[in-house]
Design a protein around this nucleic acid. Sequence first.
DNA 1: GTGAAAGCGCTAACAG
DNA 2: CTGTTAGCGCTTTCAC
Lengths: 335, 335
Amino acid sequence: MADIADVAERAGVSIATVSRALNGKSASPETRKKVRAAAKELGYVVSSSASSLASGRMNNVGFMVPFVDRWFFTSVLKGVEAVLLDRGYDLTLYDLQGVDEQRGKVFANSLRRASVDGLIAASIELAPDEVRTLRDLGKPVVSIGGSIDGVSTVNVDNLRVSRLATEHLISLGHTRIAHVGSGSALGSAFQLGDTRSEGWQSALREAGIAADPSLFREADFDIPSGYQAGKSLLAYNRPTAIFAASDEIAIGCLLAARDLGLVVPRDLSVVGIDDHQLAGFFGLTTIAQFPEEQGRHAGQMILAMLDQDDVDPQHHTTETTFIVRSSTARPDPAS
Amino acid sequence: MADIADVAERAGVSIATVSRALNGKSASPETRKKVRAAAKELGYVVSSSASSLASGRMNNVGFMVPFVDRWFFTSVLKGVEAVLLDRGYDLTLYDLQGVDEQRGKVFANSLRRASVDGLIAASIELAPDEVRTLRDLGKPVVSIGGSIDGVSTVNVDNLRVSRLATEHLISLGHTRIAHVGSGSALGSAFQLGDTRSEGWQSALREAGIAADPSLFREADFDIPSGYQAGKSLLAYNRPTAIFAASDEIAIGCLLAARDLGLVVPRDLSVVGIDDHQLAGFFGLTTIAQFPEEQGRHAGQMILAMLDQDDVDPQHHTTETTFIVRSSTARPDPAS
DNA sequence: GTGAAAGCGCTAACAG
DNA sequence: CTGTTAGCGCTTTCAC
C-alpha cells in the first residue's frame, strides 16, 4: 500500500502538503492537482486508523437499536444510512437483539473505545452515566423515539398519536376499546410503548369510559405477537375495537380476527400506528409516522453536531398523518 | 481520558506489560490482576485507532447488502451481528440502497481505507478487481447467496430449490405454471434471482412443458412488487399456479388473488421460497432457507479466516426444508 | 501556501 | 515474564 510519503515524493511536495491538499485545506489549486494525480496513480487511500489517531475523528457514527428485524427500526436505519453514506460516514450497527444487557457490553467494547464519533439510539433508554460518559468524550448523541435528559431527540408526539387513534374509535361510537402494546417488560429499557398506553387510557377517561384492564394485552412489536394477543383478546367477551401500538401488532390482530371468523370492520375495528408497507393491503386505518424520515433527520442532526461542536440539544417532532382505510367503522348495532 | 501510560504508572509496570496483560498475552497472573485493577480504577479503555494503527487489526467486519429493508437481508444481518458481537467485533453496515453505483463509493471510502478486517457481502456481485484489492489487502471476504471467484461462500442450492418448488406444482398436475422473480435488472449486479428462473425453466422442460414467457414476471423482492406482478399475471388468461422467487413476492400474489376474488388453492396454487415470518399466516407452501443461520455461518467463517490467515475458500451450503401448507393443491378440474 | 517536526496511543520485536 | 525501543501513517502546530 502506498502511503502518504510515496504520494509526497511523487508529487514533489511535502507530506504535510499532501495531507492538506487531500483534505481540502489551504493549498494552491495547482498543488492540489498535482497531489490528486499522484495519489490516483499510486492508488493511495488514507489509513483510517492513522488518520483517526492523529485527528481524533473516526468518520463513523454508531446506530443502536433493540432489534434490527422490525419494520420501524429497519426504516429508521435506512434513513440514517442514506444521510451518512452521502457524507462519507460509516455506520456501525449495534443490534442489542432484545437483550438490554448487551448495552453494557457495547459500551465497554466500542463506544468508549472511541471508535465512533457519535451515537444515534433508537428506542433505547441510555443510563445517565452512559450519557455522561459520551458527553465527557465529546461524542454527540441523538435519541429517536424516546427522550433522554440532555440529549437531542427526534420523535413523534406519541401521546397525541395514541389519543388520536383512540379518539377515532370513540368517535365512531365504540366503548369496548382494547389496547395491545408494550407493557413494562421491554418498555422500560427500550422506550417502546408505555406512552401509547397512556394515550389510550387518557382518551378513554376523558370520554367518560373506564379503561378496562382486561382489554389490555402486551405484545412484542411484531405480527406473530400481535396475532397471539388478538387471539386472546377476541376469544371471549370481546371488544368491538382494538387500538394497536403498531401496524405489525394490528395486522396480527386482523389475522387473528380472520381466523376466528370475524369480519372487519363489521365485527371489529382495528387501528394501528406506522403506515407499514402492508397496511394498505389489509385496509388498515393507521397513523403514519414516517420512520425513514425520522432516521434522515437524526442523521442530519448528528452531522450538524459533528461539524460545529457543542450545539445545544435539539428536539424535533416529526409530523404524522391519519390514514383512514377500511378496518374501522361504527360498531355493528346488531352485536 | 486515561491512557496506557497512566495505567502503567499506577500499576507500577511498563507500558508494554499493560498492553500484554490486557490483551491476554504472556503476563503473570499477579501482574495481570494489578493491571486490571489499575485500568478499572482509571476507567481506561484502549484507543481503537491507536491499537489498530499499531496492530493492523480493526476489530470490525463490513457487511454489504443491496437493501436493508428486506426480510432476507435483515435476517442474515441478525445472524451475522449475533456472532460478531459475541466475539467483540463491530459490524459496519454498507447499505447500497438498491443503487449498485454506491458500491464504488463504499470501496473508495471505506474498504480500501482499511477500516474493516473483512467483508461479508450478501447477494452482491463484487467486481474481480474489487476482490483482488481485498485479497491484496489481506482482507477475507465471504459471499452469501451468490458465488464469486476465489471467495468463500454460504449458499442454498438455488437451482435445486427452485426446481423442487416447480416440480411440486408439476406433480400436483399443474401445467400452466407462472414464475415471478428477478430478471436482469437487479439480478446482474445483485445476485438475486436468475438461478431461480433457471430452475423453473429446467423443471418444466424436463416435464415436457414449455416455459411460457408470458407467464414470467419480474418483481423486486417485496410484497408490493409481488402484488403488482400477481395482478398482471392473473388479470387475463391466467396460470393455475405460481412459483414465486420469495415469500414476499408470493404473499403479494396471494393478496392480488384475494383482491381479484380468486380462492387459493382452488383457483390458484402459490409456492414461495424463504419461510418468511408471515408465511404461516397465509398458509403459504414454501421452502425454508434459514437466512439467520446463513448469517451466523458466514460470521463464523470470517472469524475463522481472521484467526488463521490464508485459509482456502470454503463453501457451505445451507440445508432447506420443504414446508407444505395450504396454498398449493391439485388444479380445479372445473376450471 | 508550504515544509519541518512533534506527537496521536498503542503493539511488537528484541533483549534480558 | 517484563522493560526498552521502534515504529504504525497521518494531522497539526509552528515557522517561514
